[in-house]
Amino acid sequence: MTQNMPGKGSSGERVHWSEQSTLRVAGVPIQATFAEAFDMKMTRIIVTAADREWCDHAAAAMTGFGTSVIACGIETAVEQELSPEETPDGRPGVAILAFAVSGKELEKQIPRRAGQCILTCPTTALYAGLPGDRKVYPNRVPLGKALRYFGDGYQISKQIPHTRPDGTQETIRYWRVPVMDGEFVCQHDVGRTEAIGGGNFILLGRSMQSVTLACRAAIDAIKKLPGVITPFPGGVTRSGSKVGSKYAALFASTNEAFCPNLRTLTETQLSTDTKAVLEVVLDGVDFSSISNAIHGGITAACESVGTDGLVGITAGNYGGKLGRHHFHLEQIMAERS
């Protein structure tokens, strides 16, 4: 990733950008750089169950091994918990967002995961989280369309007419697949749409403990926001990567410029008082949702530990050459303050 390189002070020693930064949140310097993000395909599904515990088990399985498209196929996580009043069948639920680099990959991964993680979990049901038929979302990701065959001929298709608020009729097709606890109810398919993946910000910590606290505060703030997920474990990754590797088989490898242990060996981006670095990676339904999450996350992180815990906050980019969505930190923090 390309970052602003450390400048030189009057005495000739290298000066880290954090000492010269004019933008600060709770005293923590924010680098005037940008996060670079990419076009992705996205869908949203709703999982419900008889109680919150089964629902959470299903969601954990469905979103497991969904951290990065580098090897997982999709990036996926729970967007928000839904109360019974917010779900189609009046039971506790979660909304899950899933992102992939291509529609084809999304169409492959979602039914595969749903079949092994939702269908298998007691009492669950699966619905489309993007309301709208083919007229609204022409591209569709199969749900019950693929999973119905588990019913071995005993499955039942039901098309239920609903009256929209404008008075027009919409027909939604459900599949009812007999299973050992009753029926697995599953909507036929769900739309997919364009979205953005790879928004990020990087927290430079004075200790592992302080950067952990800052990240947890950031993730807690982002969790409340709609339309965005942080797919890595706990919403955070320690293995921020650069493009390419000395090994031909790998197309991503460790970002040595942010590794504290290599500070004296490589061209580093870290000041001497930076002891640990963590990155928050964001996928969102649109530019605005990611911008809001970056703002909310950075604000919460800085306010939680201040300058005692953080040396500064920066973002990862590739010089603007690879992704067309650029999230300029100073602009986002200024506009939303």
């Binding site: 419900t48 189609p88 069948d89 009046g90 039971r91 049901a125 039901k158 239920i160 007419p161 609903h162 009256t163 459900y174 009812r176 606890d181 009753g182 029926e183 109810v185």
Partner: peptide
């Protein structure tokens, strides 16, 4: 006895 969340989908339609 029916055991399915489909009952809610089916019956809880305002129309």
């Amino acid at each position: 006895e029916m055991k399915t969340p489909f009952q809610h989908l089916f019956f809880h339609r305002s129309d």
